[in-house]
Design a protein around this nucleic acid. Structure first.
Length: 560
RNA sequence: GUCCCUGUAGCUCAGCUGGACAGAGCAACGGCCUUCUAAGCCGUGGGUCGGGGGUUCGAAUCCCUCCGGGGACGCCA
């Protein structure tokens, strides 16, 4: 149920009807009705909804927009409609609708009835997969992964509420070249720590975490794996390390409020032969060629800047080859829509990935990539360079430890993915008005507090059917109702534009309207029926705040 | 050099498929607690929407160009 959408559809119908009547009575001479917009004006004086159809018809009808609008308004006035208080022509030819408030007063009952499902729209169908984070299991999760986690998970929640059947997936890069390098690094550390004099590979993973992992291997298996062949020892070490890393990632993300439906292992694509298969399929279709000993995909055929290697001269497939096989597999699993959340540094990968899908006969528009810009960390107003070398890097578990899950998740989705994110550690930790997370959570806690007070005073809210919501006539009440009604539409737009930050903004606005109401009017008072109406307003505001926060992965505390 | 993102109030950002005098939070200044949590509210000031062209009845939004910031251009992932 989407109140705004219903109203817009109803207005659309009235406009179309009026146009048709105008044509029939020869007041208007047009061929087609253009795709007009029903928008919510910024200014209240411009009504509840405004329609721009008269401007769009002007050229076709060879008539001034104002005149067309006047004709349509005239017809609509004659038709009459209890839903519409008045319609008027304004500005350059806008048709402004002023509605009767009846629809607003239906909102609380609707929300109360839907409860934690309020905001959900059943009007989208299909299976959609959201793949996000997918950090290499060779190191810790960093700020970029954290942002990807927050965006991906919220996006999945939004799509779920928009009616899609959603699966969350993590792609574990546990095969290929980098894993060989990872294994080299582990092996070198193992030998070093067990008293052998070996050098560390130049491009190896030099971090402390690799050393820690090796130490735990030694404590578990001892410092002498001499029984094993070099090959067996290597695979034992790397398998152990990967398992440990994946478990770490899974635990950390779980404490970030994220859990996946599927952990897909790149290794399985090698084992099943899927990579070779996809390469030979591409070969069959003539989309690959050999050059300098390597096999290349003709991505330039699909608008990419240059072709891309899929199999190296040494015979090993590249990451790209595995990714093609992986994405074909996603669609083979029946997803209608596949969404990847990637860091901006992967943008060059998009064109060729879509090209590869096209080459395989998969409509490339079914793949969407949400590209997110980088995160910059600030401490006390100073930019902290994220450098592993100097040790200033902060991992996701450290971040959660320092600022808490709620603040971190909220901050990461507060900005559009397109926007570089400045993460202010001090602000995230601050428990004050400067911190938007607390502002929203406080609104929820305040409402809960009202109900605690009511209960203590022996006050109970009447049954919803007996409550007269039309007693809510104060400006703050009307604006709150209006905002509550927007929620399903907000989710719909967020789903369409893959924009979780809209929900963060929405809930901040909603909290603001609540606080304003709270400071102007009392809920608990001696007017029983007004008190009931306000209690219902509070209850439905609370539900909506909670639902919005749920989407963002932020808790809604009952007390603060 | 090519491609992607970005440039909106002192700061951080929002502005949905172009729409009516450009918004929010913070910061600044001034008010509001004997009544449901002041982690709150109310008010004031503050912007050539990077510059310049163009399309349009209408441009922060679309196109071109220039300038600034970030990123990507590997037989790495």
């Amino acid at each position: 149920m989407n109140p705004i959408e219903s109203i817009q559809e109803s207005i659309r119908g009235k406009i179309v009807e009026a146009i048709n009547q105008a044509v029939q009575t020869e007041q208007l001479n047009i061929e087609t009705i253009p795709d007009f917009v029903i928008e919510v004006p910024r200014e209240k004086e411009h009504g509840d909804f405004a329609v721009n159809v008269a401007m769009l018809l002007a050229r076709q009808a060879r008539m001034a927009p104002g005149k067309i609008a006047a004709i349509l308004v005239d017809i609509m006035e004659q038709n009459g409609d209890p839903q519409i208080e008045r319609v008027e022509v304004a500005g350059a030819g806008f048709i402004n609708f002023f509605l009767s408030k009846a629809w607003l007063y239906d909102i609380p009952g609707l929300i109360h009835q839907m409860g934690d499902r309020y905001g959900s729209n059943p009007n989208h169908q299909g299976k959609v997969q959201v793949e996000f984070v997918s950090a290499n299991p060779t190191g810790n999760l960093h700020m970029g992964n954290a942002r990807g986690g927050a965006i991906g998970d919220s996006l999945a929640n939004i799509l779920d509420r928009a009616g899609y059947q959603v699966e969350r997936e993590y792609y574990v890069n546990d095969a290929g070249n980098q894993i060989e390098i990872f294994a080299d690094s582990l092996e070198a550390r193992y030998l070093q720590l067990t008293g052998h004099n070996v050098s560390f590979p130049e491009n190896g993973y030099a971090g402390q975490d690799v050393i820690d992992t090796v130490k735990s291997i030694i404590s578990k298996y001892g410092s002498d794996l001499g029984e094993l062949s070099a090959e067996e020892r290597r695979s034992l070490i790397v398998d152990y390390a990967l398992e440990e890393k994946v478990a770490y990632i899974e635990n950390t993300l779980a404490s970030f409020g994220i859990s996946y439906d599927v952990w897909f292992h790149e290794k399985s694509l090698y084992e099943s032969g899927e990579i070779d298969r996809v390469l030979s399929d591409l070969e069959e279709k003539g989309f690959v060629y050999e050059s300098e000993g390597a096999l290349w995909f003709k991505s330039t055929r699909f608008g990419d800047e240059k072709d891309e290697v899929v199999r190296r001269a040494n015979g090993l497939p590249t990451y790209f080859a595995a990714d093609i096989a992986y994405h074909r597999d996603k669609f083979a699993r029946g997803f209608d829509w596949v969404i990847n959340v990637w860091g901006a540094d992967h943008h060059g990968h998009i064109a060729r990935m879509k090209g590869a899908m096209e080459a395989l006969g998969i409509e490339p528009d079914r793949l969407d990539v949400v590209l997110m810009q980088l995160v910059r960390l600030y401490r006390k107003g100073n930019l902290v360079r994220m450098s592993k070398r100097t040790g200033t890097t902060i991992s996701l578990d450290e971040l959660i430890e320092e600022v808490g899950k709620d603040a971190a998740r909220f901050f990461f989705v507060m900005r559009s993915p397109d926007s570089h994110l400045d993460f202010d550690m001090e602000l995230a930790k601050q428990q004050s008005q400067e911190n938007p997370v607390y502002y929203v959570q406080y609104a929820h806690a305040r409402i809960c507090s009202i109900f605690r007070q009511a209960k203590a005073a022996g006050v109970l809210m009447s049954a919803v059917e007996e409550i007269d919501a039309s007693l809510l006539i104060e400006e703050e009440e009307i604006e709150l109702l209006r905002k509550l009604a927007d929620f399903p539409e907000e989710i719909k737009i967020s789903a369409r534009t893959l924009a979780p930050h809209r929900i963060a903004r929405y809930v901040m606005d909603l909290a603001g309207l609540f606080h304003s109401f709270y400071n102007h009017h009392r809920v608990l008072n001696d007017n029983q029926s007004l008190q009931d109406a306000r209690l219902l307003l509070m209850e439905t505001t609370r539900i909506t705040i909670k639902n919005a926060l749920q989407i963002l992965g932020v808790t809604a505390p009952e007390q603060m």
